[in-house]
Computed example of a mutant assay.
Amino acid sequence: MRIAISAIGKLKDAEERAIVERYAKRLNGTGKSLGLGPIEIREFSESRAAGVDERKREEAARLLREIGPGDVTIALDPLGRSFTSEAFAALIRETRDGGAKTCNFLIGGPDGHGDGALAAASVKLSLGSLTLPHGLARVVLVEQLYRAATILSGHPYHRA
């Protein structure tokens, strides 16, 4: 199962980008034998619409454009469900074993997700109750995807 992260906003911070790339590379290596990956990260510019609702609508349309039939969509949402790392790994395993071609993770813009993106998501995922900048949310998500792969493979990276 391929993994795609579609995010509104581009990582400008070189250090954040380096961390994302490091964990993406690790995920591609560990996930290969598990049928996970490769991971693809798609960045979309923020909408320039004047109103919040229109911006969210435009950004949702951009995020959803790449989703195909048979794909599973998970939207990062502060009001979503929080998972332990083990439960997140189980979600990834169940999604893979359920026959999903791609698991798409959506990261909305500064105003959050539009209704279309939330409606398309089979899971709304919260990374915690703290507000994270988008770059840091991306770092946390990619690290947790790598951690999920190590849990599924029995690798000692995860020591809970």
Rank of each mutant, 00 (worst) to 15 (best):
A87H: 12
D97F: 03
A89Y: 01
P78C: 07
K101N: 02
L79I: 09
F105R: 11
D97G: 07
I107N: 11
C103E: 04
R93N: 13
I74C: 10
E94I: 09
A75F: 00
D97E: 14
R96N: 02
A100Y: 03
I74G: 03
A90Q: 14
T102N: 14
A89N: 06
A90F: 00
R93P: 11
D77L: 00
R81P: 09
E86V: 10
P78Q: 01
G80D: 07
E94S: 15
R81M: 00
F105L: 02
F105W: 05
D97Q: 14
R96M: 02
F83M: 07
T84Q: 01
T84A: 00
A87R: 15
T102W: 05
T95R: 08
A87I: 05
F88H: 08
L76R: 11
G80V: 10
A90I: 02
A90T: 13
C103I: 15
G80T: 11
A87P: 07
R93H: 11
K101S: 10
L76Y: 12
P78I: 11
E94F: 09
S85Y: 01
L79F: 11
G98E: 05
F105Y: 08
I107H: 12
L79V: 13
G99M: 04
L79S: 15
N104S: 12
T95S: 14
A100W: 03
L91W: 04
C103D: 03
G99W: 03
D97N: 13
D97P: 01
R81Y: 02
I92L: 06
F83P: 14
R81T: 07
L76D: 08
F88M: 10
G80M: 05
C103F: 03
L106A: 08
S82T: 15
I107E: 10
K101Y: 00
T84Y: 01
T102E: 15
I107K: 08
K101E: 09
E94Y: 02
I74P: 07
S85G: 05
T84I: 05
R81A: 03
N104V: 13
L91P: 08
E94M: 08
R96S: 00
N104K: 13
S85R: 07
L76M: 12
F83K: 04
K101C: 00
S82W: 02
A100K: 05
T95K: 08
A100C: 09
I74A: 05
F105I: 06
I92Y: 00
E94Q: 15
A100D: 06
R81I: 01
L106V: 15
S82M: 15
